[in-house]
Design a protein around this nucleic acid. Sequence first.
DNA 1: GTTAGCACTCTCGCCTTGCGAGTGCTAATC
DNA 2: GATTAGCACTCGCAAGGCGAGAGTGCTAAC
Lengths: 337, 337
Amino acid sequence: MLTERRRQLLQIIIDEHVRTAQPVGSAALVDRYHLPVSSATIRNEMAALEEDGLIAQPHTSAGRVPTDAGYRYYVEALMRDEQVPEDLQQTIRHQFHQAARELEEWARLAAAILAARLRNAAVVTTPHSPEARIRLLELVSVHDYLALLVVVLQEARVLQQTLALDHPCSQDELSAAARKLNALMAGKTASELRKERLGISGMEAAAAEAAAGLLESSDEMSLEPSFMEGMRDLLRQPEFSQGSRALGLLEVMEERNVSRAIDPSPAGGELNIVIGGEHPVDEMRACSVVTTRYTGPSGLRGILSVVGPTRMEYSRAVATVRYVSSVMEELLGVYFA
Amino acid sequence: MLTERRRQLLQIIIDEHVRTAQPVGSAALVDRYHLPVSSATIRNEMAALEEDGLIAQPHTSAGRVPTDAGYRYYVEALMRDEQVPEDLQQTIRHQFHQAARELEEWARLAAAILAARLRNAAVVTTPHSPEARIRLLELVSVHDYLALLVVVLQEARVLQQTLALDHPCSQDELSAAARKLNALMAGKTASELRKERLGISGMEAAAAEAAAGLLESSDEMSLEPSFMEGMRDLLRQPEFSQGSRALGLLEVMEERNVSRAIDPSPAGGELNIVIGGEHPVDEMRACSVVTTRYTGPSGLRGILSVVGPTRMEYSRAVATVRYVSSVMEELLGVYFA
DNA sequence: GTTAGCACTCTCGCCTTGCGAGTGCTAATC
DNA sequence: GATTAGCACTCGCAAGGCGAGAGTGCTAAC
């Protein structure tokens, strides 16, 4: 258990380091924050904090830098709840209402807002159901031996795939098949389709099979992040200025294996913060990730997350992520109830 | 007009510099390529090439480096036609045939192949018609006041948009409206739709308006690159190792304003090479871009391009881009005739 | 418990210095 | 006249040395 003074000290050390990205020294602190004690006292307290593993010196006789544990303590115990300022709330709501009523559009916008406000990378998945249901299915002839299968999901997403035909089919035949399949498959999930025997064959069976496959791969991908913004801002941070580390990061985040980089399942359904070395993936050890899941009606869900250096404005990040998430949940509730 | 020996010299200077990314000196050249003359002679010849502006020294008494003009001369006059090796051709064809018969999938694959073989960034647009035509249109109820509009284009692409309704509509009403709109709009382009008065109103008119808008924005975006692979490889090149330049590049290329970075209209319809300073965008001055347009039946077209440092294996890039483009054209011909 | 004072430790930027690579020129050679 | 050996010269670059500055821990006094 820390004394009150040490808690305050840790707090301002973190504040200062977040601001400057530099190790912070005792004298500078006393000076800048007009502390009622001398730098020597601060040094003693710092030594104690270092003893506890909350701060460290990059090398003898440099200032102190918060450790991962220090940041962890900060977010658990020190961080005060921040609110997104009223006017910004307005702006954000406005942007969402301006945007097309489109799940993808919302996700993109959310990512852009987070990235812009926090000057870091933001990753947002579009809202998906964990188990998508077919709403409507359509077959369109491309030419004799090729058709396009279009599947509309209940959650207003559209999937498509081309379908090779083993004998020529006219548009009329395809339409008829689609009608039949609609009757059989509407409202079903992938697993339901797999269980039932539909009693069809030939081209219709092939189309049904393809539709089920689409549904399955959609379910699998349902937590695959879709929009990433602000990678640029993240890489611009001083901690990544010497290229080598930045490259590794870019590699992990760019190649769509973002799910490896970001744990897609926030534990408590609530807000989740992973700090530096807590991260399982090596390349992300210099970063912290703030993630929240948002949910909508009928099982729609997705995640919002912000990726920044460990030296990141956690309170602001948390507030913004929370707020954007709440706006999205509200919109989902209104438009996709 | 260059003497034969100077041409050969320029050629090996470029070969060597492409290989090592270092300025190349006279002695090293004589040594490595067993030239039948002394380094002094080479120096004289180099002085002449420098006089012509084809090579330059980064600073007094460093080796020579090809200038943009040097590379230009190389690609115009020196570069020998290279072929993609037989076995790789096989592999590529195989990969394309393995892939789903999907325009997007092909574009993604093409980008991946180019990036992997050339170890540079590759940008590929999906095949689009410059003037998309509506094939089929569908309206799906999301809830009372919200419908999903799905538009299938002739070229087997699917567009979607949600549609706010000013009065509640059942799925039956929506289906009826869709039938009516299909009859009116099928086969039309955006501009045709804009010209004609369709004689409809209310919800149907709103849907028609939205569909026309979708078509238009699709036409506008028709040259917007869709797949970018291998940015990582590009940034790993030694010329970008000190972060600052890399950031600028990333900025230009990442933010979907790739069209600014890459001239989307290769002049002769054929192959187009832009070298370093020839590029209009500052951030791209350190890069060369090899672009080709591919075309398919019924006006489908897109571009394939490779972005690398000016020091790039042009002959290999050209050969690969050409080959991949020919494979795509062939596939388009077969499946979308 | 706090603080002034001080010796100590490191990093960082700066300068110098010494290569080494590579050049251009000149004069001799084929 | 082209080629070449020889040589002086120019720079960039890495290594070493040095001083300044920041920051520390410790000690002794308050």
